[in-house]
Design a binder for these strands. Structure first.
Length: 785
DNA sequence: TGGCTGTACTG
DNA sequence: CAGTACA
DNA sequence: GCCA
């Protein structure tokens, strides 16, 4: 869940200092300002992998730089802005759909066609027929609003990445004009490629023109796709048609390669005899990623620092493919699964989260009815046994949650949450300064519940918006996903279908643009903007790579640029960290959700082992399990012990625990281990002993001394959105919340930067933390935002 | 116009 | 330090 | 993306 990088988008924004003309996107202009004005020449040009640093000189003369790369005389600036999305107002489209074909599917866009009728062309010098603008509406709009600027739609523009030309002698693409199909640079990967080509001297034609020397097509496109896209019967002889590998290889080999090699050809394309083509060095070994089967992977020494070889470390066992079908992660993250409550299992487990009444940690009420479990584990008796056994104690850790509630102070919010809801202020005995912000607006004030998601009348809309958020995350956009998530949170709280934009825009966190999308979704059951991405192979590969533990957007993007397309490619040719290699070896395992019963079984082992080390240790399963999820992505175990007040009192115990669990075969590899005395976490992998075939699971241990237990529980229970929300709320109240406690009197500098630690307000009691913040207490299952 | 959580490990 | 991870 |  929430694997996010907060800074990249900012970086990309910063990168694009070279905006053309007036630009209606406020955020952009702000970042531009930041670069061009507040940034003195050298200062912080964000370091980054993609070394497209902002050249100060360039800031001074952006126009110059740009025209440098535009040798064609007639195009004042072929590299003007590309719009992200066809600028057709939703309403227009809907209307059109109604009058024309009901669903107007064909009116849909051609990919991300740049309609960009940017004023620049005023000279009319461009011989462009805008054949690439297929939709009547688009043309229409273009005609009517040549300098259309965001009227109803708001900001849509993408800004120009900065181009840093390589030294002249290396500009192998000098005098070449590339036309890309599709002609956009929305995905960072494509953008980076285009930028790269331009750095090597290419001119980027953003609209189709016969002055282009090359057409660079996405490699999944066929020749027919190109001609139909360009609305021409054949590609003119003088234009070279190649796929996207071509420029990459040229750059790699610092030469213009023979474009007629088969790895560069499009499906259905016979290079016309113009193959005399360019001088070519022998044979570029094509992209660095040929694919071979590589049986070697099993032979490869285990990546984990432990030399342990699991019973069967089946990297990709296809045999029991039953539960792990697709190599790709599911789009929707069903963290807190919504599923068949008719499952007895579900019923049984569903309750433990909050249930387990006032059990002190120890023994507990038995939850019977293992019948459902049978089905899960049918194949394996041992597993069955273990799970049955686990059922008897499965509530074990969970009670603490109640535990710390009842006995401790705050008697009034213990049982009756209604009271809490009524007047949050009353419980804040001291302080109680009224917020000058709208506290109700925080999603942590009113969490959701698990089943709400499936029953919500807006479920369809929500799931599509979630896909959008995920898409933008993959596109390395930091902030849009946040916007989408907030809108989704709002939508989840509606108990009736929101069908019009007008209605939607009144809701909190829903602005005009998302409102329009909501309307489109409700009326057409889909979002064209999203459909476009579905067929994007690069996006699919990106998803594949991002599914690897230890791989984030940066690495995934880099690999994609380097031409890798499969996990095998990576194993064979990419340089991988140990964790990444392990992540690939167990890709399917980690992608497979863990049934609640198995989490229980694993937790029992941990708890039993821990108690063998020290009777006082409590093992509490947090994470989505504590929130009542029917299946979990990983196992989060909080380790604590009454009377402790520092992690250092627990680390030796953790050390012993890990070593025993390792010896018993449950833990199979470490991934990330605390470095210091006071550090508090251990991340690694485990398998349920006896499981056949064994499935590696991600397991995390967190240490929490009793004095920090409440904050740790809060943190470790999540969900992530709830955490962010409540932390933001704390920060707005001049406090700071982290996994150790709630602090007040935090001094913050510019940008809320923390200046001091603050004074501890509460750490031990989860409910008191809620109370201090004026947030109504809610049980873990309701912290699904 | 500048926010959008806060921390910890890896290499 | 940037990247990734954790909720 | 949205919001103050």
């Amino acid at each position: 869940m929430a694997r996010e990088d907060m800074d990249k988008a900012a970086y990309f924004k910063a990168l694009s200092s070279l905006d053309e003309d007036s630009d209606d996107e406020s955020t952009i202009s702000s970042s531009r300002d930041k670069l061009t004005t507040s940034l003195p020449p050298h200062h912080k040009s964000s370091p980054h992998k993609h070394n497209e640093t902002v050249d100060p000189k360039q800031n001074a003369t952006p126009q110059l730089e740009r025209s440098l790369s535009a040798p064609t005389p007639n195009s004042p600036s072929p590299v003007h802005l590309i719009k992200e999305t066809p600028l057709v107002s939703i309403k227009n489209r809907l209307q059109q759909g109604r009058t024309g074909t009901p669903l107007s599917n064909e009116v849909s866009f051609v990919a991300e066609t740049p309609t960009s009728p940017k004023p620049i062309q005023s000279g009319g010098a461009r011989p462009l027929r805008k054949t690439s603008a297929p939709t009547p509406t688009t043309l229409n709009r273009g005609a009517q609003f040549p300098s259309f600027s965001s009227a109803a739609l708001g900001k849509r523009k993408r800004k120009e990445p900065s181009i840093k030309l390589v030294p002249e002698q290396h500009r192998i693409f000098k005098d070449l004009v590339f036309f890309y199909v599709p002609p956009d640079d929305i995905a960072p990967v494509r953008r980076a490629r285009i930028v790269k080509a331009r750095e090597y001297g290419a001119t980027w034609a953003t609209e189709w023109t016969e002055t282009a020397t090359h057409i660079i097509a996405d490699k999944h496109l066929s020749y027919a796709d190109i001609t139909s896209f360009l609305k021409i019967s054949s590609i003119p002889d003088h234009i070279i048609l190649v796929n996207e590998l071509y420029p990459l290889d040229c750059i790699q080999f610092k030469a213009i390669l023979n474009p007629n090699q088969k790895q560069y050809l499009l499906k259905g394309y016979e290079p016309t005899t113009k193959d005399s083509a360019a001088g070519t060095p022998a044979q570029p070994p094509s992209s660095p990623a040929p694919q071979q089967s590589l049986e070697l992977k099993t032979a490869r020494p285990k990546p984990g620092r432990w030399s342990y070889v699991p019973p069967k470390a089946t990297p990709d066992r296809s045999q029991n493919g039953g539960d792990r079908q697709s190599a790709l992660p599911e789009a929707g993250e069903m963290d807190d699964v919504t599923r068949s409550p008719e499952h007895a299992e579900a019923a049984v487990y569903g309750t433990i989260g909050d249930e387990d009444t006032t059990e002190p940690l120890g023994a507990g009420p038995v939850v019977e009815s293992p019948q459902s479990v049978e089905e899960v584990s049918r194949a394996d008796d041992d597993l069955d046994e273990i799970i049955k056994g686990a059922l008897k104690v499965q509530h074990l850790p969970l009670d603490d949650d109640e535990d710390d509630a009842s006995p401790t102070g705050s008697p009034h919010h213990g049982g009756d949450s209604s009271d809490d809801n009524g007047s949050p202020k009353t419980k804040r005995k001291h302080i109680t300064r009224k917020p000058n912000f709208n506290q109700e607006g925080f999603s942590c004030m009113k969490g959701g519940t698990i089943d709400a998601s499936s029953l919500n009348p807006n479920a369809r809309t929500i799931s599509i918006l979630q896909e959008m958020a995920a898409y933008y995350t993959r596109m390395d956009d930091t902030w849009r996903p946040i916007g989408y998530r907030k809108a989704i949170t709002t939508l989840k709280k509606q108990n009736k279908l929101v069908s019009t934009a007008e209605e939607a825009v009144k809701l909190p966190a829903i602005g005009q643009r998302i409102a329009d999308k909501i309307e489109e979704i409700v009326h057409t059951d889909k979002l064209r903007r999203l459909d476009n991405t579905k067929s994007d192979h690069n996006d699919i590969i990106l998803q594949l790579f991002l599914g690897i533990y230890g791989v984030g957007i940066s690495q995934a993007t880099t690999w994609l640029q380097q031409g890798y397309t499969t996990l095998e490619d990576l194993l064979a040719h990419a340089s991988l960290t140990d964790n990444q290699r392990l992540g690939i070896d167990h890709y399917q395992d980690f992608q497979t959700r863990i049934p609640r019963a198995e989490v229980s079984a694993l937790a029992k082992i941990v708890a039993d082992t821990a108690r063998g080390i020290d009777r006082g240790i409590e093992a509490i399963v947090a994470g989505s399990y504590r929130r009542g999820a029917e299946s979990c992505g990983d196992i989060d175990v909080l380790l604590t012990k009454p009377g402790t007040s520092a992690c250092s009192e627990l680390t030796p115990l953790l050390y012993k625990l890990v070593s025993q669990l390792r010896a018993s075969g449950m833990l199979v590899a470490p991934l990330s281990v605390g470095r210091t005395e006071s550090s508090s976490k251990w991340h690694g992998c485990c398998v349920l002993p006896g499981q056949e075939p064994p499935i590696w699971r991600r397991i995390d241990f967190h240490l929490a001394p009793a004095s920090e237990l409440g904050a740790a529980l809060l943190y470790f229970t999540g969900n992530d959105i709830f955490n962010r929300s409540i932390r933001l709320l704390a920060s707005k109240r001049g406090m700071r919340l982290n996994q150790r406690g709630l602090y007040k009197s935090v001094m913050r500098g510019p940008g809320r930067a923390k200046l001091n630690e603050g004074e501890l307000v509460e750490g031990a009691d989860e409910k008191k933390i809620f109370a201090e913040l004026g947030v109504p207490w809610r049980p873990p299952e309701e912290r699904v935002c």
